[in-house]
Every structure is written in structure tokens, then in C-alpha cells.
Amino acid sequence: MNSCCLLLVLTGPLQTAIGRTEVSLHCPEVCRLGEILALFLQQYPEAIRVLGLHHVDGPSLEQIPPGLLVLQDNTLLPGKPDTEVRATGRLTLMPMISGG
């Protein structure tokens, strides 16, 4: 299967934690959301705490962290680990915020 370069756009506390507005990941052309997030967290472990996790085991997250929205083309993707994603272009990782 072809490998693609997926651009992850980071917002809110994720952007603060990593200090970048976007990062790129190499992953299969078609993969699952849980796999993309696991790969991201393995490469950027400073994001683990922001998402309320303690560690990342295995090639896929078992569930999407509560309050993490994942967008493709400004459209919300179903927040399930097995959501199929075409790893071309960009995904936005948007933790819900609660500042008031």
C-alpha cells in the first residue's frame, strides 16, 4: 500500500503543547483514525497529557479521547477509532475548549 504524507493541523492546547501549528505524518494512504492518532502521539508524546491520556500502547487508540474533534475539509469526522481516513491532504485535530 502506498505511503502518504498527512498534514495534521493543531489547534488550542495541542498547538500550545507542541509549539507548532501543524505537523506531518507518514502513514498508509487509507488508514483508520485510531491509527493516525496513535502514530501522532508516539511521535509527539507531549500531546498525550493534553488529551488526558497517560500513555499510548499499540498501533491504534482504543477510543478517541473525549472532546477531541477531528476535521477533514472543515467537516467533523465520526469520532471512532475505526473511522476510515484517506491520508491525503490535511486533518485538523481540535480539542474542545472551555474558556469562559
Binding site: 489547534t11 488550542g12 492546547p13 500550545t16 497529557r49 493534553v50 488529551l51 488526558g52 491520556l53 479521547p65 473525549p66 472532546g67 477531541l68 474533534l69 480539542p95 474542545m96 475548549i97 472551555s98 474558556g99
Partner: peptide, 29 residues
Amino acid sequence: YELEASLTVIQPPDTLRFRDLVPDVPAGW
């Protein structure tokens, strides 16, 4: 948060529920 902000209107069943976006308290906030 910081220089970001978000806004939506929630009114089920016309819209999704807030819990569809935030099923439980995000531990990282």
C-alpha cells in the same frame, strides 16, 4: 482558549447533542 474561540448552537433533536462533541469531561483541560 488563548487567541482561539468557538461558537455553536445546540438544540437536540435539530442538532447534535453537546455530549456528541464531548462525551465526558476531557481530562486534559
